[in-house]
Design a protein around this nucleic acid. Structure first.
Lengths: 238, 238
DNA sequence: TCAAAAGTGTTGAAGGTACACCCATGC
DNA sequence: GCATGGGTGTACCTTCAACACTTTTGA
């Protein structure tokens, strides 16, 4: 019975979405010292008007990773995004109408690169500060909480924080990002020493412009050195 | 179309397995200094005779976590097992006959508690040393490799290694477990100091019996202290 | 000249590494 | 008495946390 059921789906359309599994994406951004998440407002169905994580169906011939990239690109028009699977969320009653398992992904994007896609307006898609998240549809608050926990762990293992910053940044910006994600205060002197000691940052021939205080050195992230360090294994505790 | 398809499934049997998602479990054990994985031999279908990870279907009314526990219990007759989701594996061609996504889980069990379930014999279910794994069905080698990587990371963050050892163990046994999982050599003197300093171990009024060398102190793991430490946050680097 | 952030220097405490060495037990 | 693993002690070195201090810049 199971395989004849399958055949009827496959016969209909090889590219049709699978009907029991969805993708949901937690998209993090960092703006003016705050960690934010991109939420979308549902326009139809039982959840009309409520906010939730952007997501969608998986096509028959694409991997779940590809599906997540496609959905993200449809929403933000961004390519080459840092994207990783969180895990599958499979409570039997998470979706009220029928049994649907969702696979959670989380993405880190540079806010300077981001533009809301044509088709979305400010009323459909909006950045929410991480501690001002409203009630979301289904189990999306749970998915978001899990991704927050995961981000806090990940950020201590690998320098993924850079994915949230512009190409050029100052050491203090980087430190404030870590403070915001981890929810702790840091000592700038110790942070400088530690991060510079890792040799992952390349100082640029540029300084901050138009600030009402001493202009800070700008740095960029050196992904070549990162790759070498990753092979040897390193850790990133703060 | 999607929802009418769904209704026909639900009408048939509320407890029927979902047909597009499976569970696969990587079950780790530790025996005589070697890290091992429990594999099962497939008795029918296109993969007859080949070895693979134990797994199965998800019932309509159980969560994916519950499904994993049920499958594990059916295989090993063990309850109360350390079990965690790895992630979903969703390549479109991972299963040759049709599109099936699988959710990987990994479990750590105490070999002393384990008995192969009635219905399974030594030829159906077998422990394989971690570096003697044969070619497995589908993408199971990939799932196993991923779980190995995950275990190496996890073991550095939390004392889950204890799940693989008997109730009572010696410090050297514990150290050898870490050495085996992480693939490194350690200094016993430094290991002792470090692990005892964490206060996670409780010395028992017992020593090893019948060994041809000085009998070692036996310890047990104190889960109460672990809980307290977890709340405060601690790390477990070696 | 003041406020604000950039950036430097120092010190004591804690923890890690690498060893050398002694202890108990069975064969 | 010797092989084997259990267990202790220590000296050196690195890293970390805390905090005081100096520098640069715009308003």
């Amino acid at each position: 019975m199971v395989s004849s059921l399958h055949n009827s789906i496959a016969a209909k359309n090889d590219y049709s979405a699978m009907n029991a599994v969805t993708i949901d994406c937690v998209i993090f951004g960092f703006d003016k010292g705050s960690l934010e998440v991109l939420l979308v407002q549902h326009a139809e169905g039982i959840s009309k008007g409520k906010w939730g994580l952007p997501g969608g169906w998986i096509n028959k011939r694409e991997s779940t990773d590809d599906a997540a990239h496609r959905l993200l690109n449809e929403l933000t028009a961004l390519d080459q995004i840092y994207l990783e699977q969180l895990k599958a969320f499979g409570n039997p009653d998470r979706f009220p109408l029928r049994r649907v398992i969702t696979i959670g992904y989380y993405a880190l994007i540079k806010r300077e690169d981001y533009n809301i896609k044509a088709g979305f307006t400010a009323s459909d898609a909006k950045w929410y500060k991480i501690n001002e998240i409203p009630d979301l549809i289904y189990d999306h608050n749970e998915i978001l909480a899990y991704s927050m926990k995961h981000l806090r762990n990940r950020v201590r293992q690998a320098p993924i924080g850079f994915e949230l910053l512009p190409e050029k940044f100052t050491l203090l910006q980087l430190m404030h990002l870590y403070e915001e994600i981890l929810g702790i205060e840091m000592d700038k002197s110790n942070f400088r020493r530690k991060i510079l000691h890792m040799k992952l940052l390349v100082p640029l021939d540029e300084k901050q412009q138009d600030v009402s205080h001493r202009a800070a050195q700008l740095y960029k992230f050196d992904s070549e050195i990162y790759t070498k360090l990753t092979e040897k294994g390193f850790n990133f505790e703060f």
